[in-house]
Design a binder for these strands. Structure first.
Length: 277
DNA sequence: AAGGAGCCCTGACAGC
DNA sequence: TGCTGTCAGGGCTCCT
């Protein structure tokens, strides 16, 4: 599923095929997503040239250069939990759940696929920073502004468990259930522990663990990148490296104890009672 | 005000 | 075999 590393991989993968290209046609086979496709999006896009792609949290930002007399605008694309964007050749027939095509000049097509339709694409006028969804986001996890000191400071007085705290987008973005679980394992912290009662030193370790697991996943994403360009589908490349996520009832890779599952913030949380305290 | 619950959606799987 | 029920997930809104 598209977590931050996969959104980043997607951005890198599609950029060479869309940046600097003009959108010649838009095919919408489905308008109903978590946010409906804005009215008139097709007309607004055709004839626009795509600028340099960027990413914020799990949002992919597609800037559109203005046509004559128009303002710049940006597409805000979220892949939800089952969405993917890939490049296909013009004329390749859509498969089930291939909902949106952006046909680029030169004959390549940016194709959006999303079985569960938890994702969406929205149209931003004006500056990206003014959008309410982006304005309240915390720092990027791989930036210098995210560190143990920030986790420590923001957690004081907070009584919720550390795992949902870490998944709060106001604290740090892009850390979903998988990476929160894995980072807490690497840092040796029990996911049920009250956020406000964790020492500074342990938060230093947690921040480092978040960076470590995300960096490793982005590196692995290189594999996904090639598959996605060649259109052969995505392998479960990261699954083999998971220590706790999806492994409830199985032995801990470090100590052999049976991994336990609890629910925190309506999310399944797997951890090792021996290695995490 | 913090934090929990509900909602959106469909495929995979378990249990009958 | 085919049905029904449950779960998964991010991020938003709505409640207490």
């Amino acid at each position: 599923m598209p977590e931050l590393p996969e959104v980043e991989t997607t951005r890198r993968g599609i950029a060479p095929y869309v940046e600097g290209r003009e959108i010649s046609e838009v095919v919408l086979r489905q308008r109903s997503f978590r946010v409906p496709v804005p009215e008139g999006l097709e007309n607004a896009l055709v004839g626009r040239r795509v600028g340099t792609l960027s990413r914020r949290a799990k949002y992919l930002l597609v800037p559109l250069e203005p046509r004559e007399g128009e303002e710049p605008a940006t597409l805000l694309w979220h892949l939800g939990m089952s969405g993917s964007l890939r490049i296909v050749n013009l004329g390749e027939p859509p498969r089930k759940h291939d909902h949106i095509d952006l046909v680029m000049d030169g004959g390549r097509v940016l194709r959006y696929h999303d079985p569960r339709r938890f994702g969406f694409v929205d149209w931003l006028k004006g500056t990206v920073d003014s959008d309410s969804r982006l304005a309240r986001l915390g720092p990027e996890p791989l930036s210098e502004t995210f560190d143990g000191e920030r986790l420590y400071r923001l957690s004081r007085g907070r009584r919720l468990a550390v795992k949902p705290f870490l998944m709060d987008n106001a604290v740090v973005v892009g850390v979903g259930n998988i990476y929160a679980s894995e980072a807490l394992f690497l840092a040796g912290i029990d996911p049920r522990r009250e956020a406000g009662r964790i020492a500074r030193e342990r938060y230093d370790r947690l921040a480092a663990a978040v960076k470590e697991v995300l960096t490793a996943a982005i590196t692995q994403g290189g594999t996904t990148l090639r598959d996605f360009v060649s259109g052969t589908g995505e392998p479960g490349y990261f699954a083999q490296r998971l220590n706790v996520y999806g492994r409830a009832g199985l032995p801990c890779r470090r100590c052999g104890a049976e991994l336990r599952a609890v629910t925190l913030g309506q999310r399944a949380s797997v951890f090792c009672r021996i290695c995490q305290s």
